[in-house]
């Protein structure tokens, strides 16, 4: 295999890595928005649950969650026998806890006064959230969400351990096929850098630019 062919073989696995990251990001986004709203506007009981969820999933390793779901629950619930599905769920659950915190601080910076202003104009609580708070909070959350996607792209490599055929697995296959310990590992590490680097830097810049525009 020429180095170009090897590189193409590695790049073929990039869509899988990206799809795991993106799906778990979306799952985390949904969970994050719901739980951050609960923690700010919910009833006492719901707040308790949201708080517990955040604390638990911010303090456990994602690989332990994967093992628990894949090996532990997989025997009882066949749906967790699928490593791809299990990876997405585990990464999503952990990411949801992170994103809930990102949104909470973003909503916090929009401020309670805007909520009061919106309700005093006769908007219902839901409408003030939908049209006033959320559009601004989403923009404020962009840099945090950018580094969250970058984190998920990197953490998706854990799914290689439970058997998903993604970039890290292709690296392993390539190592076995070429018997080289140098090229596959360096190339795949650089591919990961190329995937995550633009996200973190570009979204960070965009976020601070928008923030200045909005005067927040």
């Amino acid at each position: 295999m020429t180095p170009i062919e090897q590189l193409i073989f590695l790049l073929k696995a990039v869509p899988v890595t990206l799809s795991i990251s993106l799906l778990s990001f979306l799952l985390g986004l949904g969970l994050g928005i719901i739980f951050s709203f609960i923690r700010i506007y919910g009833t006492v009981f719901l707040k308790y649950i949201a708080d517990g969820y955040e604390k638990v999933f911010r303090s456990v390793p994602v690989l332990a969650v994967m093992f628990l779901l894949y090996f532990g629950l997989g025997g009882y619930l066949p749906i967790f026998k699928d490593p791809y599905f299990t990876s997405v769920i585990s990464l999503g659950l952990v990411s949801g806890a992170n994103q809930s915190q990102i949104f909470r601080s973003a909503i916090g910076s929009v401020g309670r006064s805007q909520m009061l202003a919106a309700t005093s104009l006769g908007l219902t609580q839901f409408k003030s959230l939908r049209y006033v708070i959320l559009p601004q909070a989403l923009i404020l959350a962009v840099p945090g969400l950018g580094s969250e996607i970058a984190l998920l792209i990197k953490d998706s490599s854990y799914s290689f351990i439970i058997g998903v055929i993604e970039l890290m697995k292709h690296t392993d296959i390539l190592r076995a096929a070429t018997r080289s310990l140098v090229f596959p590992y360096i190339a795949s590490a650089l591919i990961y850098v190329a995937l995550t680097f633009p996200l973190a830097t570009y979204l960070d810049k965009w976020g601070s630019m928008k923030k200045r525009e909005l005067g927040l």
Binding site: A150, K154, D155, S156, S157, Y158, F160, M168, T171, Y185, S188, A189, L190, Y192, V193, T196, F197, A200
Partner: peptide, 9 residues
């Protein structure tokens, strides 16, 4: 490099 690549790599 070390922030952009996964720990496993």
């Amino acid at each position: 490099f070390f922030r952009g690549s996964p720990l496993i790599a």
